[in-house]
Amino acid sequence: MTVRLAAGTRQQMLQHAYDCHPEEACGLLAGPVDGDVQRVFPTTNILHSSTNYTIDPKQHLAAIRAADQEGFEIVGVFHSHPHTVGYPSVTDVTLAPDPTWLYVLVGMEEYGSPTVRAFRISDGVITEEELEFEESMT
């Protein structure tokens, strides 16, 4: 299944990944349930680690409220791997909170050529999703 992401979302995730480098960057994705990703909410990695992340719960709450105002739900999460490929780690799989969520990975193994890939993680099984980023009108 192809997942569509609104214009600007890819750039927002990449910018946050670079801003946080060498720490892992993280954030939440919002949109209609089972629909496209419309919003990216960059958040603080409260671990400030290059190998692990935990989203600031207060910012998670704020993202839920902001999404709710637009009739959206939190439908996924993104984070970066500052020095490795953008593929879910064992820890990512173990801690994945919701099988319906989209898990977007920004891989920065090659610092100047980051990758953006997305996955579903259900019962420990990783399934890659095809991404389609809408073009910006500006």
């Binding site: 892992e24 190998t51 935990t54 989203i55 839920i64 990512d92 801690l95």
Partner: peptide
Amino acid sequence: DEDIRYLDGLDTVVDENADITILPAVAGGR
């Protein structure tokens, strides 16, 4: 707006007009 871990945890007193929001912790790593 307050994380109950920084209040009195499960003993935190609830006003009946208050809202409780439950969130999954979102974490991962290499």
